[in-house]
Design a protein around this nucleic acid. Structure first.
Lengths: 339, 339
DNA sequence: GTAGAGGGTGCAACCGGTTGCATGGAGCCT
DNA sequence: AGGCTCCATGCAACCGGTTGCACCCTCTAC
C-alpha cells in the first residue's frame, strides 16, 4: 500500500507542491478535497491523481488551525488493563476510523485528579470526548460538556449524551435465580463508590433482594482487582452468605481463587455471579455472569459522538444497553446447612 | 483543579489577546513560555500572570504547525483486546504523560494493511511511533523509521530502536522442565507467522527440543484467540504429544477448555505451558507460563522514544527483557502410556 | 452584437503560534 | 564624549492549510 511514501516532515509534501505539480493554485488543491462540487469534475480528478502520485497527506494540524476541526477524539478510561475496557476501546476506535477520526487514549489510573489533568491536556486538540466510567465530579464533567461534545459511558448525567449498560435486568435475574436455588443470604462485593455502575448494581441488588425476601451483605472491595477479590473472601465467609454477586468478573476471579484456597468448592458449597461477562468462559468452573456488551457500548458511544460532532446544535441522547444473566457453572442449589 | 475553564474554541484566548492585555508584542508572549531566558525575569512573570488571568492555553495545533513538534505520540497494536497489550499500553501512556506527551491509540485488527493506513493517518500529527508487534513488512517499517522516530516492540529490525521480550530463556526452561518430567513428544501451538515473537518462539523451541532429544509438532493456530486454541486441540491430540506449549496464554486457555471437553485432565494426562503470563494466575488449574513483563516493555518503549525525540541525531538502542518460566499447576510428569 | 448570468479558478488574508533579524537603549571602556 | 557590546524586545515572515471575494471566460438571451 505504501503509506504515503514521503509522509515525513523532511520532504513534507504540501498543498503547494501538489499545486505546482498540477499547475493549479493552492486553493484549487484544497477545494479538490474539501469542496469538490465547486470544481469541474475534470480538475478534481486531475488534482487528486497528482496528489496520490506525490503521496500527499493533508496536514491535520494546519487544517485544524484554520477550521477549528481536528479530526481527533479522545477516550478516557479509568484502567485500560481492566478487561471491561479493551473491547470497548477497540470497537470505539474501529468505529471512529470509519468516520476518519483518530483516537487519543487516556488512562486515569482510577484517579479523578489525573482524569482532569488528562482532559485538560487533550482538550485543545480533540473535537470531542468519550468518558468511560468517569470518576470525575459532576461539576467538572458539565463544565467540560459545555465547551465541547462529550459522551459518557456508564455515567448518568441528565442533558449529556450517554451510553448506559443497564445492569438491572441481569442483576434481577441473578437474584431471582439464587432465590430459586434456595439461597437466603447473599453478599455483594462492591466496586468503586464513584462508579455509576456500582451504584446502580448496589441499588438494584438491595431492592430486588428485599422484594424477594433475601438479605444482602455488602462487602466493600475498593479497586476492582483480582487481589482485592481474593482478599475479600474472608469477609464474605464471615457474613454467612451462601452466594455472592461481584462487582465485576475480575473480582469474581479473585473470589474464586480465595474460595478454593479455603477449600470451599463452587458451586457445591457456594454460588458466585460475576458482572460484565468479560472472562466468563475462561474461568473454571465457567462463571455465571451478567452480560455487558462492552463492545456494543463502544460502538454506540462512537456513533453518539459522531452525531454530536455533525449536529449543528448541541443535543443529548441516551442509549441503554440491556443485560441478561448468562448462567454457567458457578451457580447451584444452596448447601443444606452452612458448614 | 478546574481544567482550563475556557478551553473551548468560542472564546479562544490567543497569544494576541495576552499580548494586548500585557502591553507587549506577540513574540514576547510566545517567548515567555518557550524561551524565558531571552526575556527579563520581570517581563516573564508579568506575561505569565496575565496569561493565567485570562486563562490562556497554548494551541498545540498552531504550535505544531510552526515547530513541527506536536507533543503527541502514537502506539499501534494488533489487538488491544488481547490481554498482552493493555498493560503495555497502560504503562506506556503513564510514562508518556510524565514527558508531557499525549498518546494516540491505533488498533490494526491484526491486519498489515490497516496498520499502514492507521500510521499514515496518524503520522502527520505525531512526533513518533511505538509499534507493538507490528504486522507490517520490514520495508514499510524502515520507510517510516527513516522519516520519524520509531520504537518497535517485539520486532527485531537492525538499526531501529526496539524492545524485545526475549522468550528464549523461559522457553528453554520450559522444554527442559518438560523433558525432566518425562515428556518425549511436544506440540507447539503457533501464532501469527508475521509475529516476531512467534518466529522466535518457534525457533528456540525446535532447536532446544532437538538438542534435548524431544520431537516437536507444530500446530498452526493463526490468530491467537480462545476459540482458535480450543479448536486446535484435536490436532494436538492427533499428534500424539503429551505436552504442549502455546503461543500465548489466551490460546492456552482455549486449549485448556478443549482438553476438558475431551475429558483429558491437566496436568495428569497432559501438560501445558503458556506464554506471556497474562492470565496465568487466573486459570484453573493455574497455568504454567513464560513470563513476559508487558508493562516493563511499555515503560521501556516510552523511554526509548523519549530519548529518540530528544536526541539530535538518530540512533538505535535495543532493550531486551529476559523471561523465565513460572511453574504453576498445569505441568506434571508425563502419563505412563498414551491413553 | 452586446449584456447578463453563472460556473470555475486564483488572489490574498487569516488561523495562532514561532523565530531570524533588526532595533533601541543601557552599560562599559578608553 | 564617543564607540562598542550586549540584552530585551518588536517586526515580519513563515508553517500548511481554508475561504471570501474578485475575476474571467463561456454560454444564453434579446
Amino acid at each position: 500500500m505504501g503509506m504515503a511514501s514521503r509522509a515525513g516532515r523532511a520532504p513534507g509534501v504540501t498543498i503547494g507542491d501538489v499545486a505546482a505539480a498540477a499547475q493549479v493554485s493552492r486553493s484549487t488543491v484544497s477545494r479538490a478535497f474539501t469542496r469538490p462540487q465547486l470544481l469541474s469534475q475534470e480538475t478534481v480528478e486531475h488534482v487528486r491523481a497528482v496528489a496520490v502520485r506525490l503521496g500527499y497527506v493533508g496536514n491535520q494540524a494546519a487544517r485544524a488551525l484554520s477550521t477549528g476541526r481536528f479530526g481527533n477524539i479522545a477516550v478516557v478510561v479509568p484502567d485500560i488493563a481492566n478487561p471491561f475496557f479493551p473491547p470497548l476501546v477497540r470497537s470505539l476506535q474501529l468505529a471512529a476510523e470509519t468516520a476518519d477520526l483518530a483516537v487519543f487514549l487516556g488512562d486515569s489510573d482510577e484517579s479523578a485528579e489525573r482524569e482532569a489533568k488528562l482532559i485538560a491536556r487533550l482538550a485543545p486538540q480533540v473535537e470531542g470526548f468519550v468518558l468511560a466510567s468517569p470518576r470525575l465530579s459532576e461539576e467538572l464533567i458539565r463544565e467540560l460538556a459545555a465547551t465541547r461534545p462529550v459522551v459518557l459511558v456508564n455515567r448518568d448525567l441528565d442533558g449529556i449524551s450517554r451510553v448506559l449498560i443497564d445492569s438491572s435486568g441481569g442483576m434481577t435475574e441473578a437474584v431471582l435465580l439464587l432465590k430459586k436455588l434456595g439461597h437466603k443470604r447473599l453478599a455483594y462485593l462492591a466496586g468503586p463508590r464513584d462508579s455509576w455502575s456500582d451504584q446502580q448494581r448496589r441499588e438494584v441488588l438491595t431492592q430486588t433482594s428485599a422484594k424477594a425476601g433475601l438479605t444482602v451483605e455488602i462487602v466493600e472491595v475498593g479497586r476492582p482487582t483480582y487481589a482485592a477479590g481474593r482478599d475479600s473472601v474472608s469477609a464474605v465467609v464471615r457474613s454467612g452468605a451462601t452466594a455472592a454477586i461481584a462487582f465485576d468478573d475480575v473480582v469474581s476471579q479473585g473470589v474464586l481463587a480465595g474460595l478454593e484456597v479455603r477449600g470451599i468448592s463452587v458451586p457445591t458449597d457456594f454460588s458466585l455471579v460475576g458482572c460484565d461477562d468479560t472472562l466468563a468462559a475462561l474461568t473454571t468452573p465457567a462463571l455465571t455472569s451478567v452480560s455487558a456488551g462492552a463492545a456494543t457500548a463502544g460502538t454506540a458511544a462512537a456513533k453518539l459522538l459522531v452525531n454530536l460532532l455533525e449536529a449543528t446544535e448541541p443535543s443529548a441522547e441516551c442509549v441503554t444497553i440491556a443485560t441478561h444473566l448468562v448462567t454457567r457453572a458457578t451457580t447451584a442449589a444452596a448447601p443444606k446447612s452452612t458448614p
